[in-house]
């Protein structure tokens, strides 16, 4: 395993040569990526290329067979998912995973928990500190929901939201962890063209407002082309191309992977 934790240029997120195999299948093979602060990158590839597996590797759901992963020069390898979240990497899920029986605002407030400053005693006695921090959480959650356009549904149950709003809530919840790197797993899946365009604008806006780097998985090439600075293309678990949107568009390997050999 290579260890690059001693790297000196450290204000970024680096993944080096990450690999994992499920039985005989090499799901991800030597995946390498580097994200500058506030950079917006796209990760595209056909079905089954290993995009979500990469997210699962980064967030600690799977342990990679080999490779290295660092944020601000600190190795994240072997961290549990909740430790990864605390370190500053948040994600959304392709198949929506909201806390569906909880209200919209509670969904967001769960993400504040890892930095909660009151103790069980404050909870039981409802001390001034409990009220102060609870109000503070509520205000922050409201502000966040307003940015995502969900503030008028904050007391509804998450499962009662329309599909597009559920996707937005997933992003809001991930943002509430105050991430340095935000991983969005097909945030536009299932939306109509209009909604997709609006969502992409929101994502670009989020990046500036929350000063976070964004790694975006998306099927729709056109969408990613519009907002990403750099795109990595994956097929059969391997990187087949990476570069600016323009470079990717004209890359014969990418065209082959998407359209097949003519």
């Amino acid at each position: 395993m290579t260890n690059i934790s001693s790297d000196t240029t450290n204000h970024d997120f680096k993944v080096e040569s990450l690999s994992i195999a499920f039985g005989g299948l090499k799901a991800v093979n030597r995946f390498t990526l580097s994200l500058q602060p506030m950079e917006l990158q796209g990760l595209i590839g056909p079905n089954g290329a290993g995009k979500t597996t990469i997210f699962n590797l980064i967030t600690g759901v799977y342990l990679p067979d080999s490779g290295a992963m660092t944020l601000n020069g600190k190795s994240l390898l072997g961290f549990k998912p909740h430790q990864i979240a605390k370190a500053g990497i948040a994600r959304t899920f392709q198949n929506i995973r909201l806390f569906s029986e909880m209200t919209v605002i509670e969904n967001v407030m769960v993400s504040y928990h890892m930095r909660v400053e009151y103790r069980y005693v404050d909870v039981l006695l409802r001390t001034a500190r409990y009220y102060r921090i609870e109000n503070q959480f509520r205000e922050r959650a409201c502000a966040l929901l307003e940015i995502m356009g969900l503030e008028n549904r904050k007391n509804d149950k998450a499962k009662s939201l329309p599909y597009g709003d559920q996707r937005r809530l997933e992003i809001a919840r991930a943002l509430a962890t105050n991430p340095k790197v935000l991983l969005l797993d097909e945030p536009a899946a299932g939306l109509n063209t209009q909604e997709k365009v609006a969502l992409m604008a929101t994502i670009a806006e989020i990046r500036n407002k929350f000063k976070t780097a964004v790694l975006l998985i998306e099927h729709d090439m056109k969408l990613v082309m519009g907002i990403c600075e750099k795109i990595t293309v994956l097929d059969h678990g391997e990187i087949i191309a990476s570069g600016t949107p323009r470079e990717i568009q004209n890359n014969p390997k990418v065209i082959e992977a998407y359209l097949g050999v003519g």
Partner: peptide, 13 residues
């Protein structure tokens, strides 16, 4: 209770 994987990803131990 609601979703273990999502809870973990939001920093809940």
């Amino acid at each position: 209770r609601e979703n273990e994987i999502a809870a973990e990803s939001m920093g809940i131990n």
